[in-house]
């Protein structure tokens, strides 16, 4: 496959950045998207150029490190798939592919396609702790949990914190991410003691980081590689409003 790549190049956070064009001649449809970028980088290194910086780690779709807005869609054209699990067979010979970093003021570009997502870590930190006994594992059936709640909590807990929701949101809102954490802990008996303090602190931190507000467009959930459902956001809203009413 012959491809033209238009890639965002930016030396550092202070650099203005620009789009650069690259031609790749010998792309196999069996390559993953990141392997395709590896091939480009090897060539750039041999030619004495600066390789394109992009985030990646497990390449198994579970760590949340990879990102990339591919032709305007976070994590590319295949639904419920991270960029690392996206394969070149979803593209055609002669395609022009535009690759950009997540765009949000709360996710400043560090270099090229790498953004600083530590705002998410600070939202998690603001959530604090859950009061849970540590030490030896408790008897499994000692805390009964309704099956439906367990399923919903588990669905929310699959969030890998990649930030695609922010990238896709027209408001650059971090609501789906924050809501996944709130839902995951709020549905569990272990999450109850700090439930309302947690939602207030996490939403405060989310707002302080400069993310936009949610307008219920649903763009986040459609690009989410883990398919975190939109109802998590409504659960967060319910908890936050209850916490606000309580004071």
């Amino acid at each position: 496959m012959k491809l033209t790549l238009k890639i965002w190049r930016q030396r550092n956070a202070a650099d203005k950045g620009r789009m650069a064009s690259y031609e790749l001649d010998d792309v196999s449809p069996d390559m993953s998207f990141l392997e395709m970028l590896d091939v480009l980088n090897e060539r750039l290194i041999i030619e004495g150029d600066d390789p394109v910086a992009f985030d990646h780690d497990c390449r198994e779709g579970i760590c949340g490190m990879c990102s990339l807005v591919i032709d305007g869609t976070a994590h590319g054209p295949q639904r419920a798939t991270t960029t690392c699990q996206l394969h070149m067979r979803h593209f055609k010979d002669g395609d022009v592919i535009t690759i950009e970093p997540w765009r949000a003021s709360a996710f400043p570009v560090i270099k090229d396609l790498v953004v600083d997502r530590s705002a998410f870590d600070r939202i998690i930190q603001a959530g604090g702790y859950v009061s849970a006994p540590t030490g030896s594992a408790p008897e499994a059936a000692s805390i009964p949990i309704p099956q439906a709640d367990a399923h919903d909590a588990f669905d929310a807990a699959t969030c890998i914190g990649c930030g695609a929701c922010v990238a896709a949101c027209p408001n650059a809102s971090a609501m789906l991410f924050t809501a996944a954490k709130i839902t995951h802990l709020g549905l569990m008996p272990q999450g109850q003691p700090e439930r309302y303090g947690r939602v207030t602190a996490m939403v405060d931190q989310m707002d302080a980081e400069g993310f936009g507000g949610c307008t219920n467009t649903g763009e986040c959930t459609s690009v989410c590689p883990k398919g975190i459902p939109l109802e998590t956001i409504s659960r967060l809203n319910a908890d936050l409003l209850k916490a606000t009413a309580k004071g």
């Binding site: 956070a13 910086a53 560090i110 600070r122 930190q125 959530g127």
Partner: peptide
């Protein structure tokens, strides 16, 4: 039984292949 606090944050990332010398915005406090 002793109750201790269990951190829920366990999503520390390392930014591979990029030096962290670039200035990163200071954490904003709520």
């Amino acid at each position: 039984m002793s109750w201790t606090y269990q951190k829920i944050g366990h999503m520390f990332r390392n930014v591979s292949s990029v030096s962290r010398s670039t200035p990163v915005a200071a954490p904003r406090r709520p």
